[in-house]
Structure formats: structure tokens, C-alpha cells
Design a protein around this nucleic acid. Sequence first.
DNA 1: CATACAGCACAAAACGTTTTAGTAAAAGGT
DNA 2: ACCTTTTACTAAAACGTTTTGTGCTGTATG
Lengths: 347, 347
Amino acid sequence: MFGMSEQGSPPSRPTIRDVAREAGVSVTTVSHALNGKGTASEATRQRVLAVADRLAYRAHPMARGLRQGRTGVLGLDMRPLDAIGSYLPEGVDYFMRFAGAAAVTALDHGLGLMLVPDLTRSDIPQYAHGVDGYVVGDPVRDDPVLTRLLDASVPVVTVGRDPGRPTFTDWVGPDDVCETKRVLDLLRSRGAERIAFLAGTDDNAWNVDSEKAYRSWARRHGVPARVLHIPEAAGEEGGADAARRLLKGRQPRPDAVYCQTGRHAAGVLAEARRLDVAVPRDLLIAAGSDAQQTRHATPAITALDLMPEETGKAAVELLIARLAGDTRPGPIVLPADLRMRASTGDD
Amino acid sequence: MFGMSEQGSPPSRPTIRDVAREAGVSVTTVSHALNGKGTASEATRQRVLAVADRLAYRAHPMARGLRQGRTGVLGLDMRPLDAIGSYLPEGVDYFMRFAGAAAVTALDHGLGLMLVPDLTRSDIPQYAHGVDGYVVGDPVRDDPVLTRLLDASVPVVTVGRDPGRPTFTDWVGPDDVCETKRVLDLLRSRGAERIAFLAGTDDNAWNVDSEKAYRSWARRHGVPARVLHIPEAAGEEGGADAARRLLKGRQPRPDAVYCQTGRHAAGVLAEARRLDVAVPRDLLIAAGSDAQQTRHATPAITALDLMPEETGKAAVELLIARLAGDTRPGPIVLPADLRMRASTGDD
DNA sequence: CATACAGCACAAAACGTTTTAGTAAAAGGT
DNA sequence: ACCTTTTACTAAAACGTTTTGTGCTGTATG
């Protein structure tokens, strides 16, 4: 038997040589039989397969990777998480769902998914340089991680485009302009006339394009535009601050607020309640990304479900296609789902 | 220069041979200089280091792994997520924080962390078999994943013990018995006399030990024990169902409910409000795990913060210690933090 | 009957490291 | 002057695969 030293040492895994010996063929033949490559006779192939199965043989991933120049592992780098430095960020919901779906999709293709917190750190594991390709979540303008990967000509797919790289089209994500207008149209149809826009401060495509869409929409409808920027990390507290400014300030009070993040929206809602501004009667609220906070607030907040599972799946699949040499041009635009809830008078 | 084919082909990464040639030494010397192994003169060592730095040389992880028999990657398998099959489970909050901290800790030790959704599936990536060790989150009784790993003598650390493996002590987690009693003591000190216990249905140590602690505590204080089991995945809906049974049923109405999961607790709170049972006046609520739902409910719900970050860090560090041959006996018991909030009359 | 051409199997090279087992020169001890 | 040890370095083996190139059969083709 393989791996049996006379001393009863730890059972080492069977190698291709063990299979070859046991099946009475060469290692080449085993390799060919297992990978469906060479010209082995059906009989031999079956015999090899049987032996390999009996020995529970699996090719050593590193040996295979070394020879083929591929590792069978994809890297995942979520930029907003890096920025915060903590893994309890705004949108934890989105990221976990995204990462989970990405991991499962990779799995379905026989690949692993490795979390790489921040690729620009100097002390990242050796292994991070060895993965076959990267998924980079929500890059900021001229993202340094992206620069590094592209310079090293590592295949990479992003979630949302890099605002500073218009020619890079290997990304997956929603059509932010279109989706933003959809929400604004909804608010308008529910009677809103002065809609304020609450954006984050990250310089990524989601914020940039949504704000642009908001301004263009306001101009086209001849209504005043009012934009506030609150750091994503400020969460509900930040939303409440903004609400105070919007509802108690000198300027005419808005009758609707569209917040990019769910937590900001929840903060606006909480502050509105404190100020006795009734939602949805006196104020409509909507969010650009669905989250625990929007689903479970009272009243529940209308929000765009950015489909993290579908996005994670699509990102990994696009990356795999690139690795396989598929050059069909991106991006892959995914529709979001507008969840209409009580905060806009829907149910 | 290295990697420069006459055709301007893709720039391949520099190998140890490139460094050796450039520095005018053998590959052995380069390897020794870089790893601080052999007996190279200081001058040579510095020269090699300088060249390696200039060429941005990094050892190919697979080649190194193949030779050393180690991959530099740890695997992470969260059992509750496997069970649900979706990555939007109860406690998404806990898992993301845990996974993030684990990834960062691995990183700090120069290792990668790979997500492996379910190790018992037949189609898991080749690579999953190649990682150096595993962290398994919340194993169920006689967990098949654990069986598989231990049979293959893969180093493994769990979060929470396997209830069916009393002799396996390589785990990290809270002292569930002690923490449960702490919460019950708090409820009692706030006036509760009939405390109901709402557990999940997963057969893991957390549920098992907490319920045992509850029953023992009730017996010792001479108060009736009442336990309901609701699937973790039922979430707030499940908590609401349980609340209906507890608050409208024939049996004497409890004046406090202790829920294992934060989402169950949020569901109980929501249903209590619907039934006009005031919290905390008529009913105290506490949760055995902190979550978005407990922090942001109104009133906020008292909960045990199980310290996912510290737990993730400790789990990875224990695994790394095992890999390094450290045999100090486990387990590592981590204190939880009792967050007292309005649902028990605290603030 | 020689030639070509599948079909089948294999030996050896290659992937990029680390480790083993050296060698030659210098230093140290009598 | 001779042996021994240390220092500084290296050639080659090894890790477990895949891939390349080659040889050997036997059958079809000229």
C-alpha cells in the first residue's frame, strides 16, 4: 500500500505514482486517464479510474498548480472593508451575501475563494500573489489595488466600475444611473416635489454615478437639487445628523430623502420620528441599497436590492470566463430590484 | 532581464534563478539568504537581498508549498452557513465579523484564509484538500466535516466544541453555561420570576449547553423551566410565532424571555408590541447573541456580545500554534460581554 | 513489399522552490 | 607540517504533477 512506512508514520496521501503502480501503468497514463487528455484505451482508462477511486487519490493541488501555472484559487478583495479597516462596516449584509455567493460559485467551478483583506499592504501572504485572478469589490477612483493587479497583468474583475478607468470594462454591477432614476420616479409618483439626496463619501462609481443621475434628473424635471455627503461609516448616526440639517434648517424642508445607504436611511427615519415628522405622510424615504436596517425599520423603508448574490455569482463567472480566454467585452449590467415598502406609502 | 522573451510576451514573474544570475551566486545561496537558513556571509546576504528587492522577487507560493508540504493557506468552514445553504443566515453579522477577523489574523501571520462552503460536498475544489489546517465554526454533534478532517489528520480548530466529541479540546469559545447564568441572573435582578427560554434547533454546543444551564439555573432557583425550540433560520418570524404562543397561550404568561439568537429576540419584541405587551414594563427580553437586530430594535435589546472578532482571532492563532507543533491543551475560553439595554430596563 | 498512419503506452523534461549532501578554502589546534 | 573544524558556497535531488516527445505495435494505403 501507499504511504505506509514501516513505522506506522502519519498516513501520507497517495500520489499519482501509487495509482500508476497499483494499476500497472505509467504515471503519464494515469494523468491522461484522469484528465481525459491522451489516447488511452477505454479499458485502461476505466482501470485507472477505478484504482484512483479506490485509493481516494486526488492530485496534489500545489503540484498541479506549479506545473500548470494556475492555482485554482481566486482572490476576493472588498475595498470598502479595507478602507474602514474593520469588518463590521456599513452594509455588512451586502458583503456577506456577496462573499458567500462568490465562494459558492467558485466552488461550483472547482475553485477556491480566498479573502485578501488589503492587497496594498506589504505583509500580505505570499499566497495572495499566486491566485489565478481577483475580484475587487467597489473600487475607488484610480484604485491602487486595481493598479497593482493590472500592472502585474493579473486577471481581475471589479464590482462596479473604477470611476477613473473608463476603458476598463471588466466589471459587474447595476446601471446606477437608471436605477437611481427609477427610485426618483417612484418618489415623484408618490407626490414628492423636493427630494434631497444623501450620498456617501467613498469615491466609487456607485456614489459618483448616482449623484450625477440625481442632478440630471432634477434638472430635467425642473426641481431643485440638494445633495448631502455623509461618510458611509457614520451609519445611522450620520443619517440622523443629515436629517436634522434637512428638517430643521433654514432652507425649504424636503418632502422626500433618497439615501444611498440603508443605514443612512434608517438614521433619517429615526430622526424624523424624533422630530415628529411623520413617514410617509410628511416625508418619504428611500434607500439606494437594501439592508437589515431598511427591511426591519418601522415603517419599513423602500430600497433598491442590489442583488448581492447575483452580483457575486456574475463577478466570479466573468472572472472564470476571462481566465478561460473568453474575451467577450464587459461590463455585465445586472438589474436591481426595487423593494417598495411603507416608507413611500407602498406595502 | 528576466522574463523578457524576444516577442514581448507577457512579463512572467522573476524566478529564484533570475535573482541568482543577477547576484552572481547559486540558487541555493539565494534561498538561504532569503530564508535566513544557511551560512552565507553578511556581504553576500545583503547583495542577494538587494537584487531580490530590485527585481521584486517573491517565491512562487506553489513551488514553495510543494517542496515544504505546506500551502500557507487556512480553510474556514462555517457549519451553520452550510446547513442553511444560503449566506444570508441568522447572525450574518456574527459570521462576517468572525470571518473578517480570522482573515486579518491569518494575514498578520503571512497566511491566507480560504472560504470552503461545505467540505462534505463531493465537488469541493481540489484546493480544499491542500490547505494546512481548518477552522470549523459551530460544529453540530458528531459533525461529519470534523470527522472527515480528523480522519485525514488535518489540523483543525473549532469554534465551540462538538457536543459529541468530549475529548476533542481544540476549540475556542465562550463558557456557555456561565454566560447563560449571567444573563438569567440579570433578568432575575430586574424582577423576572418566570423566564422562558427560546433556543435554536441546531444541535451544537451553544444550544445544548445553554439549555442545560437554563434548566439547572431554574431548578436551583426553584422556578419553572419553559423551553421552546425554533429553527435558527426562522428568524424574526419564528421569534414572533414563539411570542404568540408564550403570551397568548393557556399557561401562565412569562415575564421575561431569553432568546438564543438576536433575530428571535427581535421577533419576540415585535410581536409583544403588536399584542400591547410593554417592554420592559410587562416583559423583559434578552438575547444570547448580539446582532444588528438587538442593537437597533426599539427598545434596544440586552444581549451577550460573543466577541466574534476576538473569537476569530483566537481560533486562527490556536490553529497556527497547532501547526507550529505547540501542544498546549485547549480549549480557549473567551469571556462574552453582556450589553445591557433598554429591553431589561437598563440603559 | 515498403510506407504511412493511427492507436497506445511510456520515459523524461519541466514547473520553481527547499533541502541534502557535498566541496574547497580558510582558520584553528597540536 | 599535519589534521580538524569552520566558513562560504554550490550541484543535484526532491516535492507531485502535466506535458512533450518518442517508440512500438498493428493495420490500412500505395
